[in-house]
Design a protein around this nucleic acid. Structure first.
Lengths: 198, 198
DNA sequence: TTCTCTAACTTTACACTGTCTAGTTAAGGA
DNA sequence: TCCTTAACTAGACAGTGTAAAGTTAGAGAA
């Protein structure tokens, strides 16, 4: 009931799924407009009618990645104890689980923003922002019970986000090389104790 | 007294400097083997005699970036008070200062490792590892006075690295977008109090 | 000097990328 | 039936990295 237009069926969706498949199978360099088109069984210029260019397709793919990202965090959260610390740790572990099992998706999501991002179809940009905000809200929710770090209202969120994202980068992009000696400690070890709001 | 070989003078060095200039001027997408060659006044195939391929040139460039990175951190460290906390904060501020004033260098340094990294000239790989380790040691040194976080010997380093790197990513790659409301807190606010070793 | 060898470079070519333009096909409304 | 238009195809173009072959310059040996 979405598009159901004539020739292909739903090329837009097919291209996004093809892109994700290419990423998962071949890493970040395997994602190509032409390969997406080929995987969807369509000519290399067909995507232009659904996405203004490669960066638009990538933006749509990243938006879809954020959905998987959010659901991974939520799944971990739901399986954890109700205590604030357990909930916070579970969301972080979901974050890291996503990083570990979808390294290429993680990379494309948090890559530096490309050049032509300003001329992406506005609807795609809106969807991307929605999904990204959605994911961030999951983290924010489990940070809420704790007292603001450094007295700043967003202190806890920014601190936890920075910590978990930096840790994720460590295990994803530089596999065991930045720290010359041995395996890094568990994430739970490096997450400081956070006092609850009074 | 380095190479002083005939035709060019020192093409190897010229290519690295051209690459850094391209990065600083045009962002990460502006770095191209052919543009580096052109900027060095040489044909596009000349770099092949000094670097096994684009990834090798990039690796050499990244090694050079780590030198700038290290010197920035050291400069901040030298200007700070001698107290352990001030030293630690200064190195982190150096880290962030580098990120702010050399965003493209930061990006290429911490990008996911490319495909053909295993067939980079070994000498370049060695230089890269040396410079990267060197930079990490600066952080490690100012972490040393503090008690290991979570009881893990590397706990402090990994925690501080994750925190500052995640924060740097926040301000570099996603300029004021992940946190929908307002500016993020200062880094000093989100760095937890760390007890000294007893 | 002349000869030769080799490293440093140029030229050419190839496959691949994203994007643009012009043509084709199919669906739906008048 | 005809017309308009969205969805696609085919082809071309500039740019990319890389591989191959040809050229040039410098150094060492006779």
């Amino acid at each position: 009931m979405h598009k159901e237009t004539h020739h292909h069926g739903d090329l837009r969706e097919a291209l996004i799924l093809a892109g994700i498949t290419l990423l998962e199978e071949g890493g970040i360099d395997a994602l190509t407009l032409r390969k997406c088109a080929a995987k969807a069984g369509v000519s290399h210029a067909a995507p232009a009618h659904h996405f203004k260019g490669l960066v638009s397709l990538k933006a749509a793919i990243v938006a879809r990645c954020y959905r998987i990202f959010s659901s991974t965090m939520l799944a971990h959260k739901d399986k954890a104890d109700a205590s604030p610390r357990a909930q916070l740790l579970a969301v972080c572990e979901g974050y890291l689980a996503f990083t570990r099992s979808h390294a290429a998706l993680f990379q494309i999501m948090f890559q530096p923003k490309p050049e032509g991002l300003d001329q992406v179809n506005p609807s795609i940009m809106e969807e991307l922002n929605t999904e990204a905000t959605n994911a961030f809200m999951i983290l924010r929710a489990v940070c809420a019970p704790f007292a603001p770090v450094g007295g700043h209202e967003q202190g806890t969120e920014v601190m936890v986000w920075s910590l978990v994202h930096g840790y994720a980068t460590l295990i994803a992009n530089q596999p065991g090389e930045e720290t010359p000696a041995g395996a890094p400690p568990e994430f739970a070890c490096i997450l400081p104790d956070l006092p609850l709001r009074k």
